[in-house]
Design a binder for these strands. Structure first.
Lengths: 238, 238
DNA sequence: TAGCGCGTTAGTGTCCGACACTAGCGCAGA
DNA sequence: TCTGCGCTAGTGTCGGACACTAACGCGCTA
């Protein structure tokens, strides 16, 4: 509140929240902004960095600074890292996932398009043929669930569940060695969820999802992970 | 990735995630850091601003820069503003709240201490005596639910629900004028939830919470808010 | 006339040096 | 030993500078 760079960031953020600046709007050059706020470019730039990392502005090209809506994946990554630093346990993650994913499935069964369902089928097929490959299985599992969440047309659910699921499913890498048959059970569960979605059967989709997540939990118990800390390791994205 | 200030922020953040830097650790002075990274103070400071706004470092005193875990309320505020900018609807918020709050109540009935229950009672009493005062009712309502969520000892749930509930309950200000009797119904519902928690009755606590949120939704329907956008207005915190 | 290539220019990322202000340390005095 | 004061180091801000390049406009050519 007291420092100039902070005031600048807050002021511009407030203008965005108020609607004075709309996503897509281009901001003036740094020199102009600096003189408008009565500070040096160095100071102004510190404020801009803060806004940038908050996701309120970004540079589509080096010469263009424009207002944006914070991106979902940026928020998810931040949240996941924060949770990891807070040493949240798999139990905490699981308890939440037990309510978000069944909801996602229910919504998807109502809102999902045929197109999305066949895309989901493709992801599922890829998962089937990845049996035994841990890293790939984790990625595809996460993708399967995220696709379902997207089908539900609920961005709030998307934001709330993404970091949680991200951290939880990473735990599969610690479960798989203890229970190799989990690959098969996972495939079977996904297959049942997919079928329910195809039939537009909300209750069945929800029920199978719940059982699926519950099964995951049994795996975590076998691996002794219940109260272990979940780690956010950045997966290599080449 | 390419700019120096960004590399610095990423490098330090990585050290924190990796555990090379632990929360509470003090960082060297800016001059020393700058020379360590081979950049000027100005450039280094831009990186620090980015870390600061990400919640990874903070200044307890102007002379001390230390590593921190991102604070929950900071993340919630960011998420709430992002959701608001994404023009999320009350329907989306409600659908998620319908699963988070009942879960919170269930966990609270198991994990909550007697002390916390009596604190909750106090919040409830304050709500009763605030009947008719909209702003105060909204604040106390949010506090009541947040206290329950905290009782559940699940930080993931806390992070996931906070921004959602924050935005949703603000909508009460648009419902109240249409349905003045909602004050009474809210008080009654809270009272029932409180009773269930006192009896450690998880099912009843969950059920009443669900009904309570559902009731809220009926109010939103009466006010025609179902697909209206939820706004994140910063409440004045003096 | 329309399309293309090239030079110019404005704007960004980074650097350098400087100064006021103050938190926190050490030292001197009681 | 405790208290008060000056000093120092470190932060926030300033002003100016320079290399590099994206974007614009201009003229040239077909």
């Amino acid at each position: 509140m007291s420092y100039a760079y902070q005031q600048i960031a807050e002021e511009i953020e407030a203008q965005i929240m108020r609607g004075d600046l709309l996503p897509g709007d281009q901001l003036p050059g740094e020199a102009e902004l600096a003189s408008k706020f009565g500070v040096t470019r160095s100071t102004l730039r510190e404020g801009l960095r803060q806004l940038e990392s908050g996701g309120f502005v970004h540079r589509p090209s080096p010469r263009r600074l424009e207002v944006t809506v914070p991106q979902a994946d940026q928020l998810s990554t931040r949240a996941a890292r924060a949770m990891s630093l807070m040493n949240v346990t798999f139990r905490e993650l699981w308890e939440v996932t037990m309510v978000t994913e069944p909801l996602a499935a229910r919504l998807a069964s109502v809102q999902g398009t045929e197109d999305e369902i066949s895309q989901l089928q493709q992801t599922h097929s890829a998962l089937v043929s990845a049996e035994g490959q841990m890293e790939r299985t984790i990625d595809l599992d996460e993708q399967f669930h995220t696709q379902i969440a997207d089908m539900g047309r609920n961005r709030v659910l998307g934001l709330a569940r993404e970091p949680v699921v991200l951290l939880l499913f990473r735990g599969f890498s610690q479960i798989a060695p203890f229970a190799p048959k989990f690959y098969k059970r996972q495939i079977e569960a996904h297959s049942n969820v997919l079928g329910a979605l195809r039939d537009r059967d909300a209750d069945r989709a929800e029920k199978w999802t719940r059982m699926h997540i519950d099964d995951f939990w049994r795996g975590a118990q076998i691996a002794g992970l219940e109260d272990a800390f979940a780690l956010a390791q950045r997966s290599v994205t080449p």
